[in-house]
Computed example of a mutant assay.
Amino acid sequence: MQLSKSVSSEKERKIGLGNIFKSKMATILIATVAIWILFTVLTGGNFLTTRNLSNLFRQMSITGILAIGMVFVIILGEIDLSVGSTLGLLGGIAAILNVWFGLSAIPTMVITLLLGIVIGAWNGYWIAFRNVPSFIVTLASMLVFRGILIGITGGNTVAPLTADFKTMGQAYLPTAFGYVLVVLAVAGSAYLILGNRKNKIKYNIEVKPMAFDVSIIAAIGILSLGLVLILNDYQGFPIPVFIMLVIALVLSFVGTKTIFGRRVYGIGGNRDAARLSGINVKKHILVVYSMVGLLAAVAGILLTARLNAGSVAAGQNAELDAIASCVIGGASLAGGTGSVVGALVGALVMASVDNGMSMMNTPTFWQYIVKGLILLIAVWLDISSKNKK
């Protein structure tokens, strides 16, 4: 027993606390803080008001949900250029069902979610079973779905929605509920982090110092409490943000703690080896794309509810924001690398840039230029780090 403890301590010392600050996630978080400070100065302090931060997180929820799905696609070593058009089409269909056909919120959402799975499976079928490159399949779908949206709406905005539907995108949870979420966040992170540490020690795998794990749990608690205090100071916890966090929690668990998640990483790391080891690669591709379609449906419902209308312009370029969020968050376009948490942090960066430049009344063309350069630099840094290794 004493020998085991000394070995564990020695491993902790070898890893060292200095490497903590060299991690990509730490760099991204520092960059996010820098962006917030910059926009706070440029907007005379208006960027960090509770009202704007609440709006920022609400805006982030759409990109965040898309990025959560996109990161699984990227881990597979594939791409999906159609999620923006899928969001727009499904949001438009939801508006048509609610406004033109008079369906209430629940049946409208159920139908829309099912259609999202079907659309995602359509993409997955051509990629997995017909061996058409994902770039071509999803590029074609991007055009097809946008065309269908324009056709079924006649190019018109479909509005207004019923009150029960609008609740999904515009309502807030009770303030007390936010504090319950803080407790759950701390308890859940402690269970996962300390459980993972215990398993590593059990199988003689190197672990970081205990102080590091404790600091991570404390940081999650502080950040969660800070987020809740900010949101409660305005009107409460927005429902879209809550939905995004629940999806992130579930799919983070799927990606890191299930056989399916490990196989997705294995396929992205070496597809031939995964196939030879008995993994049904085609099935996993189909499931992942179906999941992306489902998440695009969720995002489409939330965006339509928030805008109180189905618009033909909804979701334009959303796929680029989702891809950029994943890459900024550490996902590699070569496959095999990425995380849900990283995708959310990347989505926060993209939403912060959008929100800050909008507050400054920056011309639209400059917003496109800045976001394009962010994506380019993120990919370049990813490639450079791989070359160094």
Rank of each mutant, 00 (worst) to 15 (best):
F101A: 10
L89T: 01
G151T: 10
L97G: 06
L149Y: 10
I111H: 02
F145H: 03
G92R: 03
F177L: 14
P160V: 11
L143W: 15
M109Y: 00
I148T: 12
W122R: 03
P160R: 14
K200A: 15
L87R: 01
I93H: 03
L139V: 09
N156R: 13
I127F: 04
V118P: 05
V183D: 09
V144C: 09
L89R: 01
I127S: 04
A176D: 14
L103N: 03
V99H: 05
V186C: 08
M109G: 00
V186A: 11
A176W: 15
G84W: 03
S134W: 11
F165G: 04
V183K: 12
N123W: 03
Y191G: 08
L139Y: 06
V137Q: 06
M142R: 09
A185M: 09
I136E: 08
A187H: 13
A140S: 14
L89F: 10
F145D: 01
L87F: 05
L81W: 06
V110T: 08
G88S: 13
A171S: 13
I106S: 05
L192A: 14
G91R: 09
L184N: 01
W100S: 12
G84E: 02
V158W: 02
S134N: 14
I93C: 03
L97I: 14
A171C: 07
